[in-house]
Computed example of a mutant assay.
Amino acid sequence: MIHHIAIGSPKLDVLVRFYETLPGLTRIRENRTEKKELRSVWFQVGEIILMLESDLEKKGPKALIFSAASLDKKSISTLPNWIQETEYTKYFKDPDDNLIGYSSYPALWPF
């Protein structure tokens, strides 16, 4: 079972604003350094925590795919334009060029 996924970014504030717009993610925690600078922001995604962390190097995953099970047509319309599609998964990129998506597997894409 996965507990959390951490993504490092040199542009943490930009990445946080992007992930806040995605359906199915709930912002649950913000961590700051001793100098009160933003260090990380955590999102709840089902049972998994997604941790966006300040890092001078880009350290994103190859792809981060969320479940489409709880999405509705209104949520779908708020997502960025798809850059790639399969019969199960729709993909787009975040501001750090990480591949993000929503998958309906094992059912065919419902929308």
Rank of each mutant, 00 (worst) to 15 (best):
V16Y: 07
P10W: 11
K35M: 09
E47K: 07
A63E: 15
Q44T: 03
F92R: 01
H3K: 15
I65S: 04
I100R: 03
V45P: 15
G46N: 11
E53V: 14
L99C: 08
G8D: 08
T86C: 08
K73T: 09
D97G: 00
I49G: 08
T86V: 09
I76E: 06
L52F: 00
D96Q: 10
E47W: 05
D13E: 12
S67E: 04
E57G: 09
E37M: 14
Y105H: 12
I65G: 02
E87I: 15
I7A: 05
K11M: 07
N81D: 04
V41M: 05
E30T: 10
K36A: 10
P110D: 01
S77Q: 09
V45K: 15
D96Y: 07
I76F: 07
P110G: 04
P10G: 12
T86S: 15
D94F: 01
V41P: 01
L12K: 02
S75N: 15
K11T: 10
A63L: 10
W109S: 07
E34R: 10
I48H: 12
T89H: 04
R29F: 12
I2G: 00
G46W: 12
R39Q: 12
E53D: 10
L25M: 06
E53S: 14
E30P: 09
T86M: 11
S104T: 11
T26W: 07
N98T: 15
K73D: 10
G60W: 05
K90I: 02
W42Y: 14
G8P: 05
L25C: 01
A6Q: 13
F66G: 00
S77F: 03
M1Q: 09
K90G: 02
S9R: 00
F66I: 00
D13Q: 12
D13P: 03
I5L: 15
A63V: 06
S103Y: 01
W109C: 08
H3F: 13
D97W: 02
L12Y: 05
D97C: 01
D72M: 10
R27Q: 04
L38S: 13
L71C: 07
I28R: 07
G101D: 00
I5D: 08
L64A: 11
G24K: 00
L108F: 08
P106S: 01
F18P: 00
E20V: 06
A107E: 05
R27P: 00
K73P: 00
Q44S: 11
Q44L: 13
N81T: 04
R27G: 00
S40E: 05
L15C: 05
A68S: 02
I5M: 13
L64M: 13
V16H: 10
L64Q: 10
A107F: 02
S54M: 13
Y19S: 03
I7Q: 10
I5K: 08
H4I: 02
R39A: 10
I49F: 09
R17Q: 14
R29L: 11
F18R: 01
S40Q: 01
K62R: 12
I28W: 02
L56R: 13
G60M: 05
E53I: 13
L22V: 00
